[in-house]
Write a protein that binds this DNA or RNA. Structure first.
Lengths: 212, 212
DNA sequence: GGTCAAGATGACCGAGCGGTCATTTTCACG
DNA sequence: CGTGAAAATGACCGCTCGGTCATCTTGACC
């Protein structure tokens, strides 16, 4: 696809990079952003120095993997824009989103604290909000969700729904479905009273210091 | 009251303990459970060794402070049981709960991952679920919330609502009110369809290894 | 098959962590 | 006021972390 092998690349380097990305993806998913670079190297069957040859810092490696996840979800949202039933499309998007969070601890941590992430990751989160807004706008027009709900609300709700179910994850891996239904019911209610304090378009990621 | 000075206690020890608890409460609230014991000691104006004389481990210190917060919230729930309007009482309880989470990072982290906490903390979380269930039961009877919502749902929702608003905290400190309203609207909906997979009474905190 | 730039390696570094302990200071009590 | 037990102190320990670098290995190319 886009990340193909350039001419003259060494075969072992290409293979090691694939091993590294696979191991890092799994390690971050299982153990969160706190997993050590040493453990990632071990899981990939590589030396620690090799990991740092491929990615200059842990932050870079994490960003590469989070961007992949965010872009995939944004792609899902874009694809769902063409569905006829906007309410069903929105439900499908949210299902995908919460499932992705439930399967990946690092993804939760990154989406839950966007202000202290890499600028590229923050931009990708904003793209996701835009894609979600497009989906939500159609649902609003069709009267499927209340007027004052935005795409940013939807993205934020993904994190909230997952967090609600997180303490039950070990015993009821599907518990998030319960809280997704609850949220969808709340979103459906015709304006019983406008919600307070509408969020900005996208997330206010630029106000916070870069932190490195 | 219960933690009064016993006879023969040295005055400086009593004063230092109060300084320590105050500093630790503020430090955990501002910077989460990752704050170091060294920083807590510094904020209290004490040496690190003194902190470990009062609490044998960081886990013990954290537990002491989290128990205080949990007990306070449980007390609020107990007091609200006597209100006439169960729906209003439930709203008041949830407002208190989300406010407490928004004001304390460590509290969020502890309530959001109860399985890896101190047994005392886990027990206190279960007490909170019980108190919330009592409140919720009355709301169910009054038809103010749907039949299939439990006290555990309510406690879990506190964490979820806060998490939803967390990325906006710096710019819109009151954003959680928006998502609390949304959740309350979802809770009000008469059984449009039962929610999937009811959670257990309390949280399944005993299945996980103690880790300590 | 020889060559050599590019890649892989793992010992090593400095920083920060939770926690310990020999020493010094403080205060309650007689 | 003198005394001794309890409390405070901060240097220190072992450990893990992200990251570096001199050294060795590999594979693309002629």
């Amino acid at each position: 696809m886009s990340e193909t092998t350039a001419a003259g690349q060494r075969a072992d380097m290409v293979r090691n990079r694939r091993l590294l990305l696979g191991a890092a993806t799994a390690a971050f998913a299982e153990r969160g952003v706190e997993v050590s670079m040493g453990e990632i190297a071990q899981r990939a069957g590589l030396a620690k120095g090799t990991v740092f040859r491929h990615f200059a810092s842990k932050e870079d490696l994490l960003a590469a993997i989070m961007l992949q996840l965010l872009d995939r979800l944004t792609g899902t949202a874009d694809r769902l824009r063409q569905a006829d039933d906007a309410a069903a499309a929105l439900r499908e998007f949210m299902t995908n989103g919460v499932e992705a969070l439930a399967a990946d601890r690092a993804f939760c941590e990154v989406v839950g604290r966007p202000s202290l992430q890499n600028p590229d990751v923050r931009a990708a989160i904003n793209h996701l909000c835009d894609a979600a807004e497009a989906l939500t706008a159609r649902a609003r027009e069709q009267g499927a969700v209340r007027d004052d709900v935005t795409g940013t609300d939807i993205v934020l709700l993904l994190g909230g729904i997952h967090q609600t179910a997180a303490p039950l994850l070990a015993d009821q891996p599907q518990a998030w479905r319960r809280y997704l239904e609850l949220a969808l019911d709340g979103l459906h209610v015709p304006n019983a009273g406008a919600l307070p304090e509408q969020p900005p378009r996208g997330l206010p990621l630029d106000g916070s210091p870069a932190t490195g």
